[in-house]
């Protein structure tokens, strides 16, 4: 074989190897037991990327004699399917309920992996998935590419009723809150003391704010703080045994609200608001620079409108 033919064969082989690696799309999901019957899959503290396949979110499940409760289904169909297989490696109990804590893409795009009649969420979350799910899904294809293969929006049909819910001896409390989005579901397992806080709580990773209402979010954090949990599962970032992540999320939101209001009141242009120095205490949060920029884009116009409306008046 000539030298050029050999190089061609080598190139061809390499091409196939790369394709096969991509087709593998292995999230390498390893559930960690954080309390009796309770497992968490902790995502990376990163932005969505082709490299991480969108595995930046925490999902979890509770295994009971009456079946398995899944909390959030991940960013893609592949993630959902791998989550289902990870659960099957731990228990032979069927998944009886999948709760989507809110309507952001990394929390529900794995729904296709589960039986449709097991999917449930707050009514406004279901509404949000119907109205915005399609564009989220498209955007995820742009952000993580092939990892999204076969992913379609599957909205839960079953609305959950907030309040106590018993499942296989676990005394659960479904708590309807808002602030991160218009409907945020927290799940507190009184039997184990585990609180699944959804994206109301971020840990060592800057919060995302595309649908944020900061005062409502702060009120929800206050509520979570009073629950007396023993283990806290944030939506993003490591699990803890204390309320540290609640304080951290609250501190960021308080600073963000104050900084943006001040910037608007001082007459800063949006490009100047983007250039504000972040306080040292937040610099160690993962992706804080990127999230701050996104938050300015999402939230600053409203602060600006308020600052301009004060003395502005239409022509007579």
């Amino acid at each position: 074989m000539s030298r050029s033919a050999r190089s061609l064969v080598a190139l061809f082989t390499l091409g196939w190897a790369l394709l096969l690696a991509a087709a593998d799309m292995n999230y390498d999901l390893r559930p960690v037991r954080i309390a009796t019957d309770t497992w968490v899959l902790t995502g990376l503290s990163e932005d969505f990327s082709f490299k991480n396949g969108g595995n930046i979110v925490n999902t979890g499940f509770i295994v009971t004699p009456a079946g398995v409760l899944v909390i959030d289904s991940g960013p893609s169909r592949a993630y959902g399917e791998q989550l289902r297989r990870a659960i099957a490696r731990i228990t032979d109990k069927p998944v009886v309920m999948v709760l989507n804590t809110h309507h952001h893409p990394d929390h529900f795009l794995g729904n296709q992996a589960f039986a449709p009649d097991t999917l449930a969420a707050l009514p406004d979350t279901i509404h949000g998935i119907h109205s915005e799910g399609g564009s989220f899904n498209e955007n995820m294809y742009r952000l993580i590419g092939d990892w999204m293969a076969g992913t379609e929006v599957l909205a839960p049909a079953k609305p959950v009723t907030p309040g106590p819910m018993e499942l296989g001896g676990h005394k659960l409390e479904l708590i309807a809150l808002k602030g991160h989005t218009g409907a945020d579901l927290a799940i507190f397992d009184r039997s184990t003391g585990v609180l699944f806080a959804g994206d109301l709580v971020f840990h060592d990773r800057a919060p995302t704010t595309p649908h944020a209402n900061i005062p409502a979010w702060q009120a929800s954090l206050d509520r979570l703080d009073t629950l007396g949990f023993q283990v806290l599962v944030p939506g993003h970032g490591p699990v803890t045994l204390d309320a540290g992540p609640i304080r951290q999320t609250r501190a960021w939101l308080t600073w963000l609200d104050k900084a943006l209001r001040q910037a608007a009141e001082d007459g800063l242009d949006m490009t100047e608001a983007l250039a504000i120095d972040l306080p040292a205490e937040f610099r160690r949060l993962a992706v804080v620079e990127a999230e701050y920029r996104r938050s300015v884009g999402q939230l600053f116009p409203a602060y600006e409108l308020k600052a301009l409306s004060r003395s502005g008046r239409p022509a007579q």
Binding site: D266, E304, S311, R313, A315
Partner: peptide, 20 residues
């Protein structure tokens, strides 16, 4: 066509107008 606006004094001197 409704206009909202505000004028600020600038630390550097002069004024800033923002309008929407």
């Amino acid at each position: 066509g409704e206009v909202s606006s505000r004028v600020w004094e600038r630390k550097e001197g002069g004024e800033r107008i923002r309008l929407r």
